[in-house]
Amino acid sequence: MSELMSDREIDRSKMKVSDEVAIEITNMNKWYGTFHVLRDINLTVNQGERIVIAGPSGSGKSTLIRCINRLEEHQEGSIVVDGTELTSDLKNIDKIRSEVGMCFQHFNLFPHLTILENCTLAPIWVRKTPRKEAEETAMHFLEKVKIPDQALKYPGQLSGGQQQRVAIARSLCMRPRIMLFDEPTSALDPEMIKEVLDTMIELAEEGMTMLCVTHEMGFARQVANRVIFMDQGQIVEQNEPEEFFNNPKSDRTKLFLSQILGH
């Protein structure tokens, strides 16, 4: 894991956690049919926090962050994002989705649109930004993720790492206050993982609130201010990364860490 850690010094000066609450999840429960997938989740995320969610597969990590922008519907409890509660009200959902960016394991870029069009689509149609301005913003963020020269290509012509960086840029074009990452590097080759993680680190350095489901423990150590460990749909342990990795409390966490860090 450690070989994928960034080789540069991380600037923590802007990575400050404010008192302002970004996401508040209270007593949330979710079922898939009769299967109880998330059990009594309580989680408060402040503005500026970088949270890494880890856990074995099937533990509900992805489901949890997908509930935050209502790609999955929860049945009990409440989720409040930026002061707006997620209910079945479609207008609220679209508003929250436009303020919460999300990156997926398989990028989910739109293959029939160019990179630039991918990035300008939502600003133009959801935010009603004029096309020219949207394109300028898109180019700004594409430069930030270091692929402005690919703007007129189609996603199918890019490598996996480039596609994931485009996906990040596409989310950023909506100027989100919160970014969710659902295993952003799981589908990538090792070389490409680094370029995506570097982009995410830069984002963290600018003070973005991030929730990240990942198996990159090096990233968790370097960037996160809190690591959450989930198993069987529950939050088993959460702590600062230093404590979490060096001094895990629960047996389940110890077992998990020994398995993923042991080789």
């Binding site: 997926f104 739109f110 149609w125 959801v126």
Partner: peptide
């Protein structure tokens, strides 16, 4: 792929926009 619907949803496009554009 289901991801196309999710990609469109996650950007805040409403149902008709997602259908028409994506």
């Amino acid at each position: 792929p289901k991801g196309q619907y999710e990609g469109a949803d996650s950007l805040g496009l409403n149902y008709w926009q997602a259908q028409r554009l994506i």
